[in-house]
Amino acid sequence: MTRAALDLRLKQMVDEVLVLGSMVEQSALDSVSALRHRDTAWAKKIEARDQLINTHRFAIERECLALIATQPPMAHDLRILAAVLEVITDIERMGDYIKGIAHIIPQLHPEPLPRSLPDRLDSMAAQGNSMLHRALTAFAAGDERAARALPAEDDVVDGLYGEVYHELAEGLTAHPESVDHYTRLVWVAHNLERFADRVSNICERTIFTVTGEIMEFSSSGGD
């Protein structure tokens, strides 16, 4: 393969990573809207869409492996391919968190949601999506500075998660008979919190691609 052809294949692959990220962003937005409207049909569609996300991820993985086998790549090329393999795993896992939310929606009891909950979940999803979008933009552009700055924004999501958790704990205390309902809502918020955590991994891989440094941002929460 000529150098120009390899450059094109690498660029197309990174573009497909951005597409994969967009699919997950759309699902994240839809999931909190479907929850707000208690739309179980919509939730089923979101769950089904996860299969498309997985399929797209495997297509990228195959292309990555084909380039590793046939080139084989060196130096920066190798780091891009190694990073793509990691990043698509993170994006797919983020999609799984959203699928988890979609799966919970039909299981919720018909009683109303706590008053502030839908807005706060919207905010968590929006912040997580914004971080994912900018992390992938930085990955595609090789923007080390942005990659180093982004993970700190996870504190915003963690703060919102704290508020949601507090509100749900109060609701559960007032309505102990609805323990299933509130526990499931905590899982929804928890999934959005984990969703945003994964952005740090993508940023770590951007730094690796640019510098070769394998590093880890100190994590604010555990699995």
């Binding site: 150098r3 390899l6 790549p73 060196m74 130096a75 920066h76 090329d77 190798l78 780091r79 070769g212």
Partner: peptide
């Protein structure tokens, strides 16, 4: 040398540029 060379010229050579 083949994963993260220090010199740009080495990088260009090992990646075929």
């Amino acid at each position: 040398i083949f994963t993260r060379p220090s010199d740009k010229r080495t990088e260009d050579y090992v990646t075929g540029r």
